[in-house]
Amino acid sequence: MPEKYLVIGGNGFLGRHVLEQIRLRKDGSSIAVFDIVKPADAPADIKFFVGDLRKFDDVFAALDGITAVIHTASPPHVNSSNPPRDLYFSINVDGTKNVIAACKARGIKKLVVTSSGSVISTGEAMVNVDESTPYPPQAIDVYTESKIECEKVVLAANGEEGLTTCTIRPSAIFGPGDRQLIPGMLEVCQKGQHRFQIGDNSSLMDFTYVGNVAYAHVLAAEKLGDVKSEAAGQAFNVTNGTPIPFWDFASKVWFEAGDYMPNSKKIVLPYGASVVIAYISETIYNIKAMFVDKSQLKEGLSRSRIKQAMSSRYFNISKANRILGYEARVGLEEGIKLSLAAIKSN
């Protein structure tokens, strides 16, 4: 059935792919976008609302005539020892509350919100975790803390005044437009650091092609409209469903980018040695921080980042399989190639 979608954050990395996934359905739906800026290359077939998520009137105005809302907006997650806590909470929590209130005021029935696989992370290994895992007493960082609050608010609003809601929890998103994962790996390569591998590569990691995450959002919106579906009020893990050894993903990216590093030339740093290096790097950071404004500093290798790279992190996605009918449409290899092609063409 055709919908009138509003994609909040539709100019962002994930948001743009949501637009594409809606178009791919070719079901006569209309698309509107709400974002803080309008890009120069905004497509003509999309109605664009520029506004602030935290302002009720801005959101309310954009929701005129809308039947389904997909909310993907979130501030960029910066790796900093001095995170912008207020910014995270005002957008992720207050902004989302605003969206919910505006949806209710407009009598809108479907709201899908992007969450994060990290909301159940304790910082320890995550092995095949499903959605029954509770939120940890202490979130791994401030950003994730705000995402947990956001998810709680969204799921609590399900069933209120005819609104149905659900959330999508992706993990390690990559794809065309990605500014973190694949560019980060290419940066390692440019520095010539791709020769070093930390640990024995036995931990598994889920990666998720952005188009698949976008597809899951659109499926979720569809299921919210179906009274027989159990999707309402639920959170869904969404990944490619193919966890692989962490360094394999990086090796493939480097190979496809033209920087093949044969196994025989790799230098494997044992966990212990890496922690020592990280300790030194952290110390240097702390010394620098005494003289320079912290927000200007980029964190190098830290012990927590090593632990993240060394621990398995993969999810059970059978709930999304079963209730949303979700299955990854673009595999890891194709996804990596699409990402690199997009980087090259820019």
């Binding site: 193919t242 966890p243 692989i244 050894p245 394999d248 493939k252 993969y314 595999g331 890891l332 290899e333």
Partner: peptide, 9 residues
Amino acid sequence: FINISIAVG
């Protein structure tokens, strides 16, 4: 490579 990797996972 990736298919073997996926099978291992």
